[in-house]
Simulated scan of single mutants.
Amino acid sequence: MASPEQFEERYGQHIKQKFPNINITYINQTDEQKLEQVIASGTQIDMYLSSAGELREDYVPANLALDLTALIEKHAVDISAIEPAYLEPVKIDGKVNLLPLSDNKFVMYYNKGIFDRFGVEYPKDGMTWDEALELSKKITRNEGGKQYIGLWMSPKHYLRVAQNSAGFVDPETNKATVNNDQWKFIFENVFYDFTRDPGVQKRATEDWLAHVDFNRDFIIGMYIYTSGWMQDAESSLAMDWDIAAVPTFKDMPGVNTQPNATYAGISALSKNQDAAMEVLKYLISEEYQTIMSKKGMITPLTTQSVRDVAFSDYPFASEKNIDALYYGKPAPSRVLTQFDEIVIEDAFDKDAVRQIAMGNLDVNTALRRAEENANKLIQEQLSQK
C-alpha cells in the first residue's frame, strides 16, 4: 500500500483541507507491523485502503469488512457514476464492501526509438494480440550481439487482470482451477506465441526478462505494465515513449484488462462510521477525483470531464496518447479467493511462464504442473490454519 508520504500527498492533505475537524492518523503496514499486530495492539481502525484481493485475504478474516449499503443510503452517496466493473469484485454476497478511489490501469508502453530504428509502424489502440505478435516479430532480432525483443510484460501483473477473466481457485473447494481451456487460451496466445524465437528463449534462460530491459537497457519495443510508470516518467521511461491500449482478443473486441484498483473501506469495528462515510463520499466525488485525475490517478468514474483532465499536471499530457487509458471497457473481474496469489506468484510466475518462455515446456504440461504445484501449496497453507 501507500507509503506515509504517498498517503499524505494522495489522500491526507486533501482530507484535512476538506474536514479540518477530523484527525487522520495513517498506519502503514510493514513486515514489522502487519494488520494482525495493529489489531492486537488495541488500535481502533476506522478506514482502510485495500485491493479487491486483500479484502478477502486480510480484512474479511480479521472481521473488519463492512457492508456499506446502509451507510451509502444514509449519507446519500451517489455511486451511479462509478464504472460498475469496479464494484463487482468487492461485493460479498451481493453487498458492496469497498468503494474504488483510483485504478492503476494497464497500458502498452512502447519505445519509439526502437520502432524508428527498425522502420516498424507504431502500435495502435484496438490492436488484437495477433496484430501485436506480428509487430513484435518485426522488432525481435539479434543485432550486433544485442537481443531485441518485440513485446514483453510483467507476467504476474498481467495474469491478475487477463481479459478473459479466468479465475485461479475454486472458492468452494479451495482447489486450483488453471489446467483448463481458459488458461490454455491465455498461455497459448500470449506467453507461448511471443517466445517462439530462439533468441528470446536463450535470453530468458540466461537472464530472466525484467522492467529494466524496457526502461533502462532499451531492448524491448513494447511492454505491458501499469500506468504508474507515467507518474514518474522522467526516471521510469525512455525519452521517446508513448502508450497504446493493451491488445485485445479478436473474439472480445474492446474488452480491456480487469480492474486493478485501490479501494477504501470502513471498519466494522469503527465507532466513527458516519464521519468515515463522509470522508469516503468526498474521495469518490467529482471534486476530489478531478484533482487526482490531473495528478495521474486513473479515475473509476465514468464522468467524461474527470477523464478529460487525466495527467494534465504533467508536461507530456498533450503529446501522449492519454486516450489509451480509457480504451474500451474493463473486463469483468474474475472470481477472487484468498489463495489466488499462491497460484499467480508461485505456480505461474516463478514456474509455468518461465518454463514456457525458455522453451522447456509446452502449454498443456506447464498448466498441469502449475495446478499440481498450486494445490500442494494451498493445502500446506490450509493445514497451518
Results as ranks from 00 to 15, higher is better:
residue 197 D to M: 03
residue 197 D to T: 01
residue 197 D to C: 01
residue 197 D to K: 04
residue 197 D to Y: 11
residue 198 P to E: 10
residue 198 P to I: 07
residue 198 P to Q: 10
residue 198 P to N: 07
residue 199 G to V: 01
residue 199 G to K: 04
residue 200 V to I: 05
residue 200 V to R: 04
residue 200 V to W: 13
residue 200 V to Q: 06
residue 200 V to L: 06
residue 200 V to Y: 14
residue 200 V to S: 05
residue 201 Q to C: 03
residue 201 Q to G: 02
residue 201 Q to H: 09
residue 201 Q to F: 12
residue 201 Q to P: 02
residue 201 Q to E: 06
residue 201 Q to V: 01
residue 201 Q to T: 02
residue 202 K to Q: 13
residue 202 K to G: 04
residue 202 K to V: 03
residue 202 K to T: 05
residue 203 R to K: 15
residue 204 A to L: 03
residue 204 A to T: 05
residue 204 A to F: 12
residue 204 A to M: 10
residue 204 A to I: 02
residue 205 T to I: 00
residue 205 T to V: 00
residue 205 T to D: 05
residue 205 T to K: 07
residue 205 T to H: 06
residue 206 E to R: 10
residue 206 E to F: 11
residue 206 E to P: 05
residue 206 E to A: 12
residue 206 E to S: 09
residue 206 E to W: 14
residue 206 E to V: 05
residue 206 E to Y: 13
residue 207 D to R: 09
residue 207 D to I: 01
residue 207 D to T: 04
residue 208 W to N: 00
residue 208 W to V: 00
residue 208 W to A: 00
residue 208 W to S: 00
residue 208 W to K: 01
residue 208 W to E: 00
residue 209 L to F: 15
residue 209 L to Y: 15
residue 209 L to H: 10
residue 209 L to A: 07
residue 210 A to D: 11
residue 210 A to T: 11
residue 211 H to D: 11
residue 211 H to C: 01
residue 211 H to R: 13
residue 211 H to L: 09
residue 211 H to E: 12
residue 211 H to M: 08
residue 211 H to Y: 15
residue 212 V to S: 13
residue 212 V to K: 15
residue 212 V to Q: 10
residue 212 V to T: 06
residue 212 V to C: 04
residue 212 V to H: 08
residue 213 D to Y: 15
residue 213 D to P: 03
residue 213 D to K: 05
residue 213 D to E: 10
residue 213 D to G: 02
residue 213 D to A: 05
residue 214 F to Y: 15
residue 214 F to A: 02
residue 214 F to T: 03
residue 214 F to S: 03
residue 214 F to P: 00
residue 215 N to I: 01
residue 215 N to P: 03
residue 215 N to V: 03
residue 215 N to K: 11
residue 216 R to S: 10
residue 216 R to Y: 11
residue 217 D to P: 03
residue 217 D to H: 15
residue 217 D to M: 14
residue 217 D to I: 12
residue 217 D to Q: 15
residue 217 D to C: 07
residue 218 F to V: 00
residue 218 F to T: 03
residue 218 F to L: 02
residue 218 F to N: 09
residue 219 I to W: 06
residue 219 I to G: 00
residue 219 I to M: 01
residue 219 I to Q: 03
residue 220 I to P: 01
residue 220 I to W: 11
residue 220 I to C: 02
residue 220 I to M: 07
residue 220 I to H: 07
residue 221 G to C: 05
residue 221 G to R: 08
residue 221 G to Q: 05
residue 221 G to N: 06
residue 222 M to W: 12
residue 222 M to D: 03
residue 222 M to R: 06
residue 222 M to Y: 08
residue 222 M to I: 02
residue 222 M to T: 01
residue 222 M to L: 04
residue 222 M to N: 04
residue 223 Y to N: 01
residue 223 Y to K: 02
residue 223 Y to S: 00
residue 224 I to S: 08
residue 224 I to V: 14
residue 224 I to Y: 08
residue 225 Y to R: 11
residue 225 Y to C: 12
residue 226 T to L: 06
residue 226 T to N: 13
residue 226 T to W: 08
residue 226 T to Y: 05
residue 226 T to R: 11
residue 227 S to T: 15
residue 227 S to P: 12
residue 227 S to D: 15
